[in-house]
Design a protein around this nucleic acid. Structure first.
Length: 583
RNA sequence: GCGCCCGUAGCUCAGCUGGAUAGAGCAGCGGCCUUCUAAGCCGCUGGUCGCAGGUUCGAGUCCUGCCGGGCGCGCCA
């Protein structure tokens, strides 16, 4: 049960009743209002601003309306106390038995706890990573990948139908550069001294193997026409890089439902036809761009070119879709790609990009608006830089890639679960510090450890219970039927209330497209659980297992199990495996 | 020069789409181990939410203008 949804309905009914009897305006129920947990739990369990929200339209002071709503609410059986506070907030206290029943909700749901249907099966496309197949993934790609993957899982959890997608930029200048880079190594292998690696080619060692493959063909490529060379080297090189990228991502627990290749969009004419369609719609036309003010490019030549008229959709300038040599710009194929996504029938598109692509957001939103007349939403999530350090000292060089820290290096060192969790401990648009030493620390400074430890402890308590009590059924089903009225400690009831807030947290995180919120929730839940655990050190009567009182123990174990399920539920969204012990 | 993102405790950051007395961790100080794992817990100290206006019952949150930092700005992707 989502407690806040439940009470929103009840508050709305009370409001309707009040307005019906009191001759208040009819359509008060159209006003948006919130039902949430008050910041200070002493105020109550649930708080609503309904009276404040409705007061203007009702033409009555908020406190006055609140008083009348409160008398309606008080009829509800789980409501034990109501207050009107401050300017007109309504605070509601619910009975302990109501809360205890929520514990059974968790136990019945297991680690699916928090699932809901608010997405109503709407189809959402999440595109992420989409790194060029010209080199290995770096740590920034890992962030985008983990973020996108967790967001996809989060949306699925609340009832959206999600496609996880990767756009492969296997066309254009960078593939030519890739082909030339492999060719350079090939020549060296065949003894045809190529000299220094020219500017603009890829220096990393990772291309050597592909070059060796070609070298096995002998000298046949040395005199091959540049065109066929670019085709073969570029294709095989990008395919190989993509395979390696997919391996890295797979080991990080990231798999995609769908790959779209830029090359295909060119070859099957999608790019040309989409641009043509936009031209017919009046969104694409010939024009001459002004040079950017203040930046003064050196070789600026006013040139007539084909432009997407993104200014009509809120962009700062119109954007070219053709280069001076007549070929399509990257932007043109990205238009085609987004058209392709749209044609597959999504109600919402989410793109996860690096923050250095921020300047691209407006034009892409313009594209989606132009293509769908505003029917499909595009949300672009920008992931900020990851700073990798070891004991606070920046780690920069990679043996393999030359200039950056690769995903593989970090993954091999800290493991998938640590990498994934840490990536989700910050908002996507805030820079992230990733300290290789700190994330492996077993201390409360390390959120991965802290949350995992709470889960492990919940498992440990159950193991101990199995040893302490013979013939006791500790399955979730049995625990749900235990005598939960034994749970009377304020800490225990507070813990239940935290657990009961989980579905709402999942939902708001999903709607905001911000999985990091759940990392904070899990840390707070873990802290609360550790605190309750430690109370047992000081007062043995508060221990989860009280040998001489099995029914009390079972009720507490129900709570412990529910904490474990909720943490597991969150970790599963993150793609992190909950651990049962930490020895 | 223009656009986007960011500015919250000494440090690292939350702040649930406008709610009540702005929170957490670290650092500092003081407590708790014959233990259901002290790998942890409890308490204290710490704030002109970058600055100045505006919108309204109510602003860290929305609008405008400054200040400071990051990213980007045709023929790379």
């Amino acid at each position: 049960m989502n407690v806040f949804h439940e009470f929103k309905k009840i508050v709305a009914e009370s409001l309707a009743e009040v307005s019906r009897r009191g001759g208040l305006s009819e359509d008060l129920d159209a006003q948006p209002f919130t039902v949430e947990a008050p910041k200070d739990p002493r105020r109550g369990d649930i708080s609503t601003n309904v009276a404040l929200a409705v007061s203007r339209l009702a033409g009555a002071p908020p406190r006055h309306i609140a008083e009348r709503i409160v008398t309606e609410l008080a009829r509800h059986e789980s409501v034990t106390r109501t207050d009107v506070a401050g300017p007109g907030f309504i605070n509601i206290r619910l009975s302990d038995s109501f809360w205890r029943a929520r514990l059974a909700d968790v136990l019945n749901a297991g680690d699916t706890y928090g699932e809901s249907g608010i997405g109503q099966g709407q189809r959402v496309n999440v595109e992420y990573v989409s790194a060029n197949p010209t080199g290995p993934l770096h740590i920034g790609h890992a962030r985008g990948g983990v973020f996108g993957d967790a967001l996809a899982a989060l949306l699925e959890k609340v009832g959206y139908e999600v496609t996880r997608e990767y756009y492969v930029n296997d066309a254009g200048a960078q593939i030519v550069a890739l082909a030339d880079s492999i060719y350079h190594r090939y020549r060296a292998l065949r003894g045809d001294n190529p000299g220094e690696l020219p500017e603009g080619l890829y220096p990393g060692e990772y291309l050597n193997e592909t070059a060796e493959q070609f070298a096995r063909d002998g000298d046949k490529w040395l005199d091959a026409p540049r065109e066929t060379r670019i085709e073969s080297f570029g294709r095989r090189g990008s395919e190989r890089m993509l395979a390696e990228i997919r391996k890295d991502l797979g080991d990080l627990g990231i798999r995609f439902d769908h790959f779209v290749h830029e090359r295909d969009l060119h070859r099957d004419g999608t790019v040309a036809s989409v641009i043509d369609a936009l031209r017919k719609k009046g969104c694409v036309a010939e024009g001459i761009l002004e040079p950017p003010k203040g930046k003064r490019p050196e070789n600026w030549l006013p040139r007539k070119q084909t432009l997407f008229l993104s200014k009509n959709f809120g962009d700062d300038v119109d954007r070219p879709v053709t280069k001076s040599d007549g070929t399509w710009t990257y932007f043109a194929s990205d238009i085609a790609y987004h058209h392709d996504k749209i044609s597959r029938g999504y109600s919402e598109l989410i793109d996860v990009w690096g923050a250095d692509h921020g300047g691209y957001v407006k034009r892409m939103s313009a594209v989606v608006e132009a293509l769908t007349d505003g029917d499909v939403a595009l949300d672009v999530k920008l992931c900020q830089l990851v700073r990798v350090t070891r004991d606070g000292v920046p780690v920069k060089m990679s043996k393999r890639a030359g200039t950056f820290v690769t995903l593989r290096e970090v993954l091999d060192e800290v493991g998938k679960d640590v990498l994934r969790f840490i990536m989700l401990t910050r908002r996507n648009d805030a820079p992230l510090d990733f300290d290789l030493s700190k994330v492996m620390e077993q201390s409360k400074d390390n959120p991965v450890f802290y949350v995992q430890y709470a889960h492990a402890r919940s498992c440990s308590a159950l193991r101990n219970a199995r040893a302490a009590f013979d013939d006791v059924d500790l399955t979730a089903e049995a625990l749900a039927k235990s005598d939960l009225t034994c749970l009377t400690d304020p800490g225990e009831l507070a813990l239940i209330k935290t657990l009961a807030a989980w579905p709402q947290s999942v939902e708001t995180a999903a709607q905001a497209h911000e999985p990091h919120r759940l990392a904070f929730f899990l840390s707070e839940l873990a802290a609360e659980f550790h605190a309750q655990w430690n109370k047992g050190n000081e007062s043995p009567s508060l221990r989860f297992i009280v040998a001489e009182n099995p029914s009390l123990s079972l009720a507490r174990l129900a709570l412990v199990r529910a904490v474990g399920f909720t943490i597991a539920s969150g970790l599963r969204i993150f793609g992190v495996e909950p651990v049962d012990e930490m020895r």
